[in-house]
Design a binder for these strands. Structure first.
Lengths: 236, 236
DNA sequence: AAGTGGTCTAGACCACATT
DNA sequence: ATGTGGTCTAGACCACTTC
């Protein structure tokens, strides 16, 4: 493991374990260079990750301090990582799927643009309802290029698409650009999510990328209002 | 301006202006060191910002490439920056406020924890409806420590709180930890947002921080479902 | 004046992909 | 074997805060 990641993890654990309390000053970078036997740039890199996490703040000319986040925030930071195709958020929960549609269709112009496809490409057209412990929580409409995600079948859809992509196809999923909005459930959505027509749903539109930069998934998820939340840190 | 920021901005403009097209290889870091007359670390720092923005991807052993984002994403990246207390998102829009409540109250235990206050602290208790071009879009319930945000009055609330904090009090707002969920509008919310009871609303709970790490605002915003959307990039 | 974190360098070595 | 980006160093200088 890289030095800066080791230092980052180590400091993170020390902070979350309460070794330093809120607003307390951390050791100076200079001193940590000595105790971690490293250079200033490396300490800085580790600390910048902690700043990104919202765990610490640095003041030039003064020092570095624990951010006064509260215990609820702490939990969030300990859990962390919102990235998942839903599956395996919490190992206690049982995720199942009902497949509404599983076709191969020509990409329309929107899909073509979103996935940067060449004209006349084909994509999977997947429509699933996903259940957490039997409760319908989200309807997913997914488009993926057939030449990228090969050999997909219904069994994979019953389980985790992402797992198939990562473990069987050996692609690395890197990031997703997500846009969230809110609206009323349509009749079809209401039926599938066990809601009334007009009840709230959260709609997430997303383009997901491999670590090689290829867009591999364009999807819409319509979430039951009781089973959606997102956390993120906004910076100026 | 710092060198790495200059290079970052310069490359960003060149990319957004279409100097390089999707999937095209960028010049190697090594070569850019020469053309920008700088060191590898500095180029890397600039490029890492572009990676964060989701504009480029780097492949070790291969090179650096423009990400194949589509034009809709491009627009988003050009606009960028979601941070605002609502005011001045778009200069064309006229933001007004109706003040429902403006009191000073003792912090309850939740507020105390969220803002990391000492026991028996007082906070502003501000309740506003905010209008965009006359259309009610969001109800904001805001708590702020009185000893941090001094001299607040109704005039400031009519306009932008954040503007007062930054321009009059000269604090620097750095980041906000935000949690978003969805539910049905209560009767009071429905009235204020010109909705029906049970219509969808997006609820954002947020703790905002100064650049010195102090939590200065704990707020709940209840958004009209037609006037809420959020964009963010999720990474693994 | 002294000490902090921020930037930058020039160069070393490493991990990885391609040829 | 070559060349890419990734990490790391030791030290320089800068911007900022505090004393």
């Amino acid at each position: 493991m890289q030095k800066y990641l080791f230092i980052y993890n180590d400091m993170k654990n020390r902070i979350l374990n309460g070794e330093f309390v809120a607003n307390e000053k951390l050791p100076f970078e200079k001193d940590l260079c000595i105790s971690y036997n490293t250079s200033k740039m490396t300490i800085k890199k580790a600390f910048d990750l902690l700043v990104e996490d919202g765990l610490i703040i640095k003041k030039r000319g003064v020092g570095t301090f624990i951010k006064d986040i509260n215990s609820k925030e702490m939990e969030r930071l300990i859990v962390t990582s919102q990235f998942q195709g839903l599956t395996s958020t919490n190992p206690k929960n049982k995720i199942t799927s009902k497949i509404l549609k599983f076709n191969i269709i020509p990409a329309d112009s929107d899909i073509e643009r979103q996935l940067n496809l060449t004209p006349d490409s084909f994509v999977y057209d997947i429509h699933r309802v996903r259940y957490t412990n039997g409760q319908p929580t989200v309807i997913e409409q997914t488009y993926m290029p057939i030449d990228l995600i090969v050999g997909l079948n219904k069994t994979h859809l019953k389980n985790s698409l992402y797992k198939y992509i990562e473990e069987e196809l050996n692609y690395k999923i890197q990031s997703a650009h997500r846009r969230v909005s809110v609206r009323k459930a349509t009749e079809e959505e209401a039926q599938n999510l066990e809601l009334q027509v007009g009840d709230p749903v959260a709609v997430a539109e997303q383009v997901a990328y491999f670590d090689n930069g290829r867009a591999f998934e364009y999807s819409f998820s319509v979430h039951h209002y009781n089973f959606y939340s997102a956390q993120f840190i906004v910076t100026k």
